[in-house]
Every structure is written in C-alpha cells, then in structure tokens.
Design a protein around this nucleic acid. Structure first.
Lengths: 345, 345
DNA sequence: CTGAAAGCGCTAACAG
DNA sequence: CTGTTAGCGCTTTCAG
C-alpha cells in the first residue's frame, strides 16, 4: 500500500504539504502542487480511510437505515436509497446500509464508534422507537417521514395532507360529488405510519370543504381483497363516481375488476392514485396520480445532512420539517362523472 | 469520547489487556475480564472504528454494489441487499452501499482506501465492465449473477438453466405439448444479462428433449405490450396450452388478458412463472412458480466472502461458481391441458 | 508558502 | 496470564 509519506518523499516535499494539497486547507504554490499531484498519480496513491477518520474524527460516512419489513411499496424504498447514495457521493460521502432489524442500538453503534457521522432514517413511524436516541444528544440525523412529534428533529417528507387535498380538488373540479378511498392495508394504519393517516386527513378535510361525500376503506393488495372491498363500497355507496387509491398493489386488481364489471375508466368512473409515477404511467389505464418523489426525498435528506455537517454548528436551513409540495399529473383515468342515470332508462 | 486507555485506567489494567478482552485473542483471567467488561459497561465505551481499521488493516466493512438501473424487478434487489446487510452483521461486518453509477472506479476507491475489505456485486452482466478490476489482483469479491467467463471469479446465482428445465418438466408432465414463453423486456436480452438467456437455454433444451414445441417472445411490462405479444402468440400458435412467464410486471396484465378473452386458468391454459415467491403467491390467480431465492443469494454471497476473509489464504469452499437449485412450487395456475376440441363442436 | 512533530485510538509483537 | 511499546497513515498545530 502506498502511503502519504511515500508520496512526499517521491515529490521531495514534506508529508504535511501533501496533506494540504489534498485538503486544500492552505495555499500551495503552483509548482509544488503540480509535483505532488504528479507523484500521487504516478504512485497511484489512495488515502487510507481509517487513518483519515482517526486523525480528523470525520469518517465521511452517512448511515442509512432502511426498514427490514417489506410490506410497503419497495421500489420507492430502493429509489430513495439509491438517491441517497448518489447524492452523498456527490458530496464526498459514502453510505452505510443498516437494516431496521438492529433497531436503535444500531444507531448508537455506528455513531458511537465514529463509523458514521450522521444518519438518515427511512420509513419513520409516528412514535418511532429510534427517535429517543436522536433527541438525546444524538448524532446529526434526518428522517424521511414525519413522526407524531417532530420537535427537535429534522424531517423530509411529501406533504401527504396536501396530496390528499389535491386529489379531492381534482375530482371535485371535474364535478364528482361522491368518492371512495381505497387505502393501504390495515396493518399500515395499525402501525401508525403517519403518511397514510396524513393523506386521509387531507382527503377528509378537503372533501368536507368542497362538500364531497367520501368513504375510506383500508385494503390488502391481493386481488380477492380488492374485490371484496370494491363490492362493499359499491354496495354501500352506489353513487360513487371516483376512486382515490393509495396502495400500489391494489391498482391493477382495481382496474381489472372495474373492467370486468363493465365500468369504463374514466367514462363511468374516475381513478386517481397516490403512488410512484412509474406505476401510474405503466398501469393498464395510465393513471392520473400524485407522485411520490422518491429521488427528491433522498436527495433532500442528504443535502440537509451535509448542510448541518459542514455548516455553522446550528446554522439555519437545517432544522425542522420540510414537506415537499405534491404534484398531480393528469393522465387517462380521470374525467367528469357520468350524467345521472334517468330513472328507468 | 471514551477511549480504550480510559477503560484501562478505570479497570486498573493495561491497554493491551482491554484490547485482548475485546478481541479474545489471548487468555484472560476471569476476574480481570470481569473488571474490564464492567468498566466498559460503566463508561459506555465503544471502540473507534477508524483507529481499529488503521491498526489492524481490517475495516470490517463489505461494499455492496447495486445497479443504478431500475428496469429489473426491484423488490428482489432490495431483498438481496437486506439479506446481505443482515448476514454481514451476523458476522460482525457492516455494509457500504455503492451504486452502479461510479462503475469500476468505485471498486478501486473503496477497496484501495481500505474502506472496504471486500465487495459483492449485484446484477452482473455477461461481459461486465467491473470484472477486469476483480481479476487483476482485485479485492476479495463475490458476484451475484453469472458472467460469460466466470474463470477466477466467485459467483452465486440461481441455476436459471435448471429453472427453465423445471418449468418444462412440470408442464410436459401435465401433458402440455406446446408452450409459449413470455420473457423479460427486449432491453434485458440486449444487455446480455445472462440470467434471462440461461433460463431460455434451459427451457429450449428441455423442450427439445421432451418434444414440446416452444415459442419465445421478449415483452415489455406494460399492459399494451403484453396484449400485443399475447395476440401474436395466439395467432401464430393457436394450440399453445401453457405460458411460462419470466417478467414480473407482465404477470398481472397476462392474467387479466386471459380472463378477458375467456380463457380460464388453469382449465383452458396453464401459467408458470419464474419470479419472486411473493409475486406468485399474491397474483390474482396464485401462480405455480420457480422462486428467485433472493435472501438465500444474499446470504450465500456474504458467507462465501467471510469464509474467504477469515479462512486459509486460498482455502477451499470459497472459489468458483455456486448455483442454487431451483424449486418449483405448485399453486393454482397449472393443470393438464384442455382436451383437444372436437372439430365442429 | 513549507516543514517538523505531536498525536488520533487501537493492535500486536515483544517481554516477562 | 499481563504489561510495555512500537507503530498503523493521516491531520494539524506550531515554527519558520
């Protein structure tokens, strides 16, 4: 292994000079710099990560904790993770992958050992067990998701309330007066995962404001489950003219069932989804949808962390909750409700 | 930060003793050990990762390179990644997340800087650009996937050839004489991703052996694309009585289309998939399938790496290709072909 | 603008 | 069974 000392000797300078050439922390004459960089190049020198971390107490590593559970929509998770890794690299950081399995202790471990300088937590629950560790003199952290009490925490998430409201606005604007919401599986609500409940809140309050009648049903993703929920909805509220779906796995079953029961989309019934753009665009009927900005979430999380790591001890722009504004893309699945059937037609 | 030296002082022993208590690399008397562990506990000591890596030249970190591309079935990727992380932790290793974006240079970087001791590569292409780095005095590595020339490389993968053969055996055993294969999107074949072609090879040769007529069509995952491919197949080979699908996103569209065109599964037509078990089990018709053992792949990859890292310099059991035996699970989508229609019925 | 030198916290001979 | 002592390779004062 080639060391900094060897580079220094090769270039005929001192070790510190090589170090400063690398870090740029003090002025170096053009000729020295050239000599040094040439030697580095020639010898194929690579600074030792451990030595660096030891001497500077900065590992240049961010820990990313992904949920072990896999009942949520996975592609979004991976997309966030990849965005985190990519953005981190762009700032000279590497990413350590932690699974939820180890829980709060994993945070203590990687952080206490100086392995990671900071952490990003995905899939945060409303009363997440990892939060106490973070509030109490914890390491710099950013949560992707919004817990019940975000006080003193750094969070990035989609504004799911606004997303819900956006769906209602779109449908109400088209003239729908009665809608049904097909939600995540019951387990997601039971775990209080926040985002599902926030979306619901947004849907409900905007529906009330715009005098739209609304029904909500959690739903497993299986074909049979969707069939059951759909049947119940149509039974209880025969005049429902639009569905809002927040459950990626329920999308195709729903569309298939609507087709099978002779309901054309969007002529007879409209469908609006809250899901990854890719899913919406590739559905058997391209769906009007509110996207989940996975890449943006990952990117923002890292950027806030970097700001905190490199900025003023408690500088601005790095604290509090940041909610990304949802965007609704109109595709082929939404339109005005069908004219009321003339009785006896 | 509390250091080993402080622990030593607190326990009234030397630093090396503390170190040896931690590593177990030499016998320690019960009483000393108790004193030391008590001090460690009390002071909340955590060894500094960087210092350790520097002194021992072992970082206890494995780099995992996941593809940036996302046109492959993502949940399998995440499942492998999580299995890698979990297994690595069980062996005292952490996992560094690399994206394909940086390419071969990322391998050089993390490995040359001593950041990672070894690497695991996912989604290996037949002529992967990262392979030269690995053959040439590269770091210990395990590939998940099988390149064209695995000589000198360490690979773990599902035996896709056998998987293909297994599908044919199952269908031939039920009496099917003519089958169609709906494959991955054309891009996957164009990239020479290996697994798709190996499956095809297994399907073809076993079909030839068992005198089953077979047709193969690559296929995008969209509903429309599947519709087009299906129409063509039924047109060209009206007597096809079974489908083998190796394309997770095509599964639901296919089932929906079969339903819509009045073909009952499995009475009129059988469907066998090569995909994640979860997908197969949750499909609108639970699918007979050959599973992709994501967890097992991740686990084996790590275990082979650990064996190589801790074992004899070039010990056994750590070299060459390991292909996992595929398992076919019979569910509700496969059965005997329908009786030949009596002409004029 | 550059050098010398003192650690960073831990491991692993080497000595008992 | 335990202690002493060199480093591991780099960063960063302190001096010039």
């Amino acid at each position: 292994m080639v060391t900094l000392a060897e580079v220094a000797r090769h270039a005929g300078v001192s070790a510190s000079t090589v170090s400063y050439v690398l870090s740029g922390k003090r002025p170096i004459s053009a000729v020295t710099r050239r000599r040094v960089t040439a030697s580095i190049e020639q010898l194929g020198y690579q600074p030792h990560a451990g030595a660096r971390a030891l001497a500077s107490s900065r590992s240049r590593i961010i820990a990313l904790m992904v949920p072990l559970r896999t009942d949520m929509y996975v592609p979004v998770m991976l997309e966030i993770a990849v965005a985190v890794a990519t953005t981190a690299r762009a700032h000279g950081y590497d990413v350590l992958l932690l699974t939820g399995e180890e829980g709060p202790s994993a945070l203590r471990r990687v952080t206490g050992s100086g392995l990671a300088e900071a952490v990003i937590l995905m899939d945060v629950q409303l009363d997440d067990g990892r939060l106490p560790v973070l509030r109490t003199a914890g390491p710099p952290a950013v949560l992707v998701g919004l817990p019940a009490d975000p006080a003193g925490l750094n969070c990035v998430d989609l504004d799911f309330r606004a997303a819900g409201a956006l769906c209602v606005d779109h449908l109400a604007g088209l003239g729908h007066r009665e809608i049904a919401v097909i939600g995540e599986s019951p387990g997601v609500y039971a775990r209080h995962t926040g985002f599902a409940e926030r979306t619901l809140g947004g849907l409900r309050s905007r529906a009330a404001e715009r005098e739209v009648r609304m029904l909500h049903r959690p739903c497993e993703g299986s074909h049979d489950a969707v069939a059951g929920v759909l049947a119940r909805i149509l039974d209880e509220r025969p005049r429902v003219s639009a569905f809002v779906v927040q459950n990626e796995t329920a999308v195709e079953p729903l569309l298939a069932l609507l087709r099978r029961t002779g309901r054309a989309v969007p002529e007879d019934v409209s469908v609006v989804a809250v899901c990854a753009d890719q899913i919406a665009a590739q559905a058997s009927v391209p769906l009007t949808s509110v996207a989940i900005p996975a890449q943006e979430l990952g990117r923002r999380a890292v950027e806030r962390l970097i700001a905190r790591l490199t900025g003023r001890p408690d500088g601005e722009g790095a604290a509090g909750v940041e909610l990304l504004t949802p965007v609704l893309t109109v595709r082929d699945s939404s339109g005005p409700p069908p004219p009321p059937r003339t009785p006896g037609a």
